[in-house]
Computed example of a mutant assay.
Amino acid sequence: MVSRRRLKSFLTGLALYMMAAGMVGYFGVNAYTGKYGLNARQELDQEIIALTAELARLKKERSEGEQRVSLLRSDRLDPDMLDERARFQLDYANPHDLVRMTAPN
């Protein structure tokens, strides 16, 4: 009788420790590999770096575009820019221009 009670208390304690170890293991694995874990943080940092570089490139591209558009405004029209845009839209080339033909990809 005493040995059964002792065995039951030992097995109950062992089961509780096993459940606690399982929970700690589960949360430990998720802390490393989960959606918000350490690996995900590293991937997010790399994505932040890539997107920051792309943002800088797009800002530069936009400022260049704004500068080109400002040259076409009516209050300060640049004749060279007007000539370039007219030739591009009309597919016109001056006989003295050097034209290089490339094959489409």
Rank of each mutant, 00 (worst) to 15 (best):
D91N: 09
R62A: 10
Y17P: 00
V69S: 05
I48Y: 05
Q67N: 11
D83N: 06
L71M: 10
Y92S: 04
D45F: 01
D78I: 00
F88A: 09
A53I: 09
R62D: 03
G13S: 09
V99P: 02
L38K: 12
K8W: 04
R100I: 13
L11R: 09
E43S: 12
Y36D: 15
Y92P: 02
L44S: 12
E66D: 14
L38W: 14
A56D: 15
G65D: 05
G34W: 06
L82K: 08
D75E: 15
N105F: 04
L16T: 12
R6W: 03
V24D: 03
A93N: 08
L71W: 01
G34F: 02
N39I: 14
G25L: 11
L44C: 01
R62I: 08
M81K: 07
L90S: 05
A53K: 13
G65H: 03
Q89M: 08
Q42D: 12
G13A: 11
G28M: 05
F10E: 14
K59F: 01
E47S: 13
G22I: 09
M81I: 02
M23W: 07
T12D: 11
Q46F: 03
R6A: 06
R73L: 09
A103E: 14
L98I: 12
L51M: 10
V69Y: 04
A56K: 14
I48P: 00
D45M: 06
M81N: 02
G25M: 10
Q42S: 11
G34Q: 06
L7S: 05
A20W: 04
S74R: 10
V29H: 08
E84Q: 06
V69A: 08
R4E: 07
L71S: 03
S3H: 09
D75L: 06
P104R: 10
L14P: 01
L38V: 15
P79G: 06
L51W: 05
D91V: 02
S3M: 08
D97W: 01
P95D: 09
L7N: 05
V99E: 04
M23C: 13
L51G: 01
Q67V: 01
A50M: 13
Y17K: 07
L58K: 14
A20K: 01
A40Y: 01
R4S: 10
G65R: 06
K60N: 13
Q89I: 03
S70W: 00
M101R: 10
V2G: 03
